[in-house]
Nucleic acid binder design. Sequence first.
DNA 1: GTGCGTGCAAACCGTTTGCAATCGG
DNA 2: CCGATTGCAAACGGTTTGCACGCAC
Lengths: 128, 128
Amino acid sequence: MSNKRNTIQKQIVFEIFSKMNNHPSAGMVFEAVNEKYPNISRATVFRLLAEAADEGKILRLKLNNSNDRYDVTTCHHHHVVCRECGAVADVDIIIDDSALLEGAAPHEGFTLEKSHVEFVGVCDKCRN
Amino acid sequence: MSNKRNTIQKQIVFEIFSKMNNHPSAGMVFEAVNEKYPNISRATVFRLLAEAADEGKILRLKLNNSNDRYDVTTCHHHHVVCRECGAVADVDIIIDDSALLEGAAPHEGFTLEKSHVEFVGVCDKCRN
DNA sequence: GTGCGTGCAAACCGTTTGCAATCGG
DNA sequence: CCGATTGCAAACGGTTTGCACGCAC
């Protein structure tokens, strides 16, 4: 039900993006797209990802020590960032979100709405 | 026991930074410093904060929808970001860190080391 | 005196934008 | 057709850096 056009660029970008399982930044998606389709511009990749994130079709993550990362999975889950290389992966864990929200006492008149747990760790490669 | 020099700029920057309780970005610290001490350069403020963060004396946070924020408090605690204006505040909550780390199953060979809970919410001003 | 720390301005890097050309519906 | 979408290149904003000078030690 989108009033948006279904362009070739959009198909290609999301085709390639959805096959990347490393929570890539927009730049990383552009690299991957550019390899096979050098005529698709950087701006288009950035625009398409930002648009999809705004529409809630994908997630835009801000994590420690890295640029914005995009995530195909929009349902509530958590992440780990490698402290060495910045690689990102999903973390399977069951966390009672509402218990967290209720148990928390924010300062200065804030109201809490959502929570996200970010783990820091090491990836396989960087552990040596 | 630092082999670093104790310069006037360093004293001033951290004097002012430690009085800001809004988890400021480097730019915000510079603004505050610049108001009273216009002869201290932006680069110096950025360098001093980055250096202190590298030494573990302060925290460098990357949170949703904002630049890097610095935090005087280095002990383990959690944060909330206003979804409207990006303001940051501490959140008091007791979370069993090791239980989190043990209960979590990271993908792709990651080892977890630390956790940080980031809440999204609204601040007093933006709630209207 | 020595060399670390600073100020300045320019470079940087990821991202965004203005605009004319193009393409999808 | 006609306006949404694209490609390009230039602008942007926050941060970093190279270099010469000055200050802490």
